[in-house]
Computed example of a mutant assay.
Amino acid sequence: MEFKTELSRLLNEFLETRADLFLVDLKISVTSDVTVVLDGDNGVTLQDCLDASRAIEFNMDREEHDFSLQVMSAGLSEPLEYPRQFRKNIGRDIEVMFADSTKIEGELLSVDDEKIVLRLEYRQPKLIGKGKEDVVEEREIPYTEIKKALVVIKF
C-alpha cells in the first residue's frame, strides 16, 4: 500500500475513536518528514498528540518506509480554516483578512457551514455635524470571502 494512503488510513482510524478531534493538516515532505496538525472541540492535549502518534508509529513498518513523525495541535497563531475551528472560538475576537488584504476585527457571534457572523464596533464620522459616533453592527462573512482568519490574542 502507498505510504501516504496507509498513513491517512491509520490517522482516520484514530480520529474515528476520538470524535472530539479533527485533522487540520497532514504534510509529507519528499524526505518523508510527516507533520500532523490536529485540533479539537475542547482543545488538544499532549496526551491526544501522543495517542495519535502511537496510532501511526505502532502500525507502520519502518523497514518498508522510513519516516519521521511530528504530531501537534493547531496553535493560536494558526489560521482558522474549518467551520469546526470557528465554532469553538465563538465569543472570541477574531481578525479576518479578505482577498484584497483589507482586515476587520470583531467578536465571533455565530458560525454555520456557509458563513460566520461578526459583531463589529467602531467609530465613524457623524452624518450630521462634527465629531464621531459609536457604531455596532453584525456582519455576515461567507467563507469564500475569507483569505485568512486568526484569533486575536489579548493580554
Results as ranks from 00 to 15, higher is better:
A19C: 04
D20R: 12
D20Y: 10
L21T: 11
L23V: 02
L23T: 10
L23P: 06
D25A: 11
D25L: 06
L26T: 00
L26S: 02
L26W: 01
L26Y: 04
K27T: 07
K27I: 04
I28S: 00
I28F: 00
S29R: 03
V30M: 01
V30E: 09
T31D: 02
S32D: 14
D33R: 13
V34G: 00
V34I: 01
T35I: 07
T35L: 14
V36W: 05
V37Q: 09
V37E: 11
L38Y: 13
L38T: 11
D39S: 12
D41I: 10
D41N: 13
N42W: 02
V44G: 04
V44D: 07
C49R: 07
C49G: 01
L50W: 12
D51T: 01
A52T: 03
R54L: 05
R54P: 07
R54Q: 13
R54I: 01
E57F: 04
E57K: 03
E57C: 02
E57T: 15
E57G: 00
F58K: 15
N59D: 05
N59G: 01
D61W: 11
E63A: 13
E64K: 13
E64H: 08
D66P: 04
D66G: 09
F67Q: 06
F67K: 06
S68Y: 03
L69R: 00
L69Y: 02
V71K: 03
M72P: 03
M72H: 00
S73F: 10
S73P: 10
A74F: 03
A74Y: 08
G75F: 05
L76C: 06
L76W: 02
P79H: 13
L80R: 08
R84S: 09
K88P: 07
K88C: 05
N89G: 01
N89P: 03
N89A: 04
I90R: 15
G91Q: 12
G91I: 12
R92P: 00
D93T: 07
D93G: 00
D93K: 14
I94S: 10
I94N: 08
I94R: 06
I94L: 07
M97I: 11
M97K: 14
M97V: 11
F98A: 02
A99G: 04
A99I: 06
D100Q: 05
S101G: 00
T102D: 13
T102Q: 11
K103Q: 15
I104S: 08
E105Y: 00
G106S: 04
G106E: 05
E107Q: 14
